[in-house]
Structures are given as structure tokens and as C-alpha cells.
């Protein structure tokens, strides 16, 4: 079958999205997003302040938050806690992989 060439948005920390887009794409409510910001789990782009825009990468975090909220029936504090731990784990895994890269891997 033919492949359709499509435009895709790269979710990195260079592209930006608005608070409304964040709510729409993640399925979290504006209140939940406000709570996550107050807790510090989500941070707007400082250089754009006072406008509330976020690195596009935040969409991934917000979607994870929504999944945790729904799949584990957590309140927003539980979600923030879980996000924090997941981020720590991710950082550790990245560091481990970087260290492992320097070890010999000869057959």
C-alpha cells in the first residue's frame, strides 16, 4: 500500500505549545495542569514568561500524567509523585547507558 508522507511535530524542548494545547493533547484539565505547575512537576518556558508556553516535550509528560491518573486512579499528588520518580529512573537509566558505553563489549 502507498505510504502517506505526513507532517509531524517533533516533541523536543525546542518546539513550544500553549497551555490550551497541553490540556487538549494530554486530556488533563486546566486545573490539573495548574496543580502540576504549582507542585513543580511541569514547568513553563521561562524565556517566554509571562506567556504560558511550554516546551513541546511537556506534552509527553502530561500524557504520562493522564495515563497514571486513569490507569492507577491516582489523585494529582500521587501523579506528581509518580512522575518525579519516573523522571529519576529515566535519568539513572540514561547515566547507566552512558557509562556502559565505555565498557568493553568485545564478543
Amino acid at each position: 500500500m502507498t505510504a502517506l508522507l505526513v507532517e509531524a511535530v517533533w516533541l523536543n524542548d525546542i518546539a513550544l505549545c500553549s497551555l490550551d494545547e497541553l490540556a487538549e493533547f494530554s486530556g488533563l484539565s486546566q486545573d490539573e495542569l495548574a496543580d502540576l505547575m504549582a507542585i513543580g512537576a511541569i514547568e513553563p518556558d521561562r524565556s517566554a514568561a509571562p506567556a504560558r508556553v511550554f516546551p513541546a516535550q511537556t506534552i509527553v509528560l502530561a500524557r504520562t500524567a493522564r495515563r497514571l491518573r486513569d490507569d492507577f486512579e491516582l489523585d494529582i499528588h500521587g501523579v506528581a509523585m509518580a512522575l518525579n520518580l519516573l523522571e529519576k529512573i529515566h535519568a539513572l537509566e540514561t547515566r547507566l547507558a552512558a557509562l556502559d558505553a565505555k565498557l568493553p563489549h568485545l564478543p
Binding site: 505510504a3 502517506l4 511535530v9 516533541l11 513541546a56
Partner: peptide, 22 residues
Amino acid sequence: VPRTYRVKIPKGAEDGQRLRLS
């Protein structure tokens, strides 16, 4: 329905990074 989308892999993609197809 089977669908195939062709996406451009930007230079510098990292493992786990996501593209959003609106």
C-alpha cells in the same frame, strides 16, 4: 484499516523521543 505514514526522521533523534501526527 491498515495505514502507512512516512515521517521524516530529524537529525539528532534520541531513543524514546516522540513525533506527534496531528
